[in-house]
Amino acid sequence: MAKKKVVVLIKSNPFSWKVFEALRLAVGASMEHKMHVVFIKDGVYSLTDWKPQLIGIEPFDKSIEALGMMGAEIIAEEEAIRERGLILKKWPAEIKVMPKDDIAELIKDSEVVLSW
């Protein structure tokens, strides 16, 4: 069975377990499919240098590193970062900052879109 083009779209803020679970799903699925993890809207807060341990959430540096090693593409929405005046942390995998229109194109071409 063919690999699918999958987008995990993270739009909610990281201050619950949702982003952690979304990334765990993305790591599992990237073993079988072409994976794109896209942070938009408040999801971009996940990529700043915040301290998840302070609210009892496991850090997800390992998931980001694993995604990088498995060739998954990690994307952050340029406008959302600028609107919020954020600085992204240095992660163990490349984070591509992409404008909204390019993200829309990526989603349009995907076979599975999982939004969190």
Binding site: A2, A29, E32
Partner: peptide, 20 residues
Amino acid sequence: SSMYGLAKLMTEADKVLIFD
């Protein structure tokens, strides 16, 4: 099952919906 099991299910599926 597991996250990898889910990846396999996604391969077979025609449509995938998520409620989060």
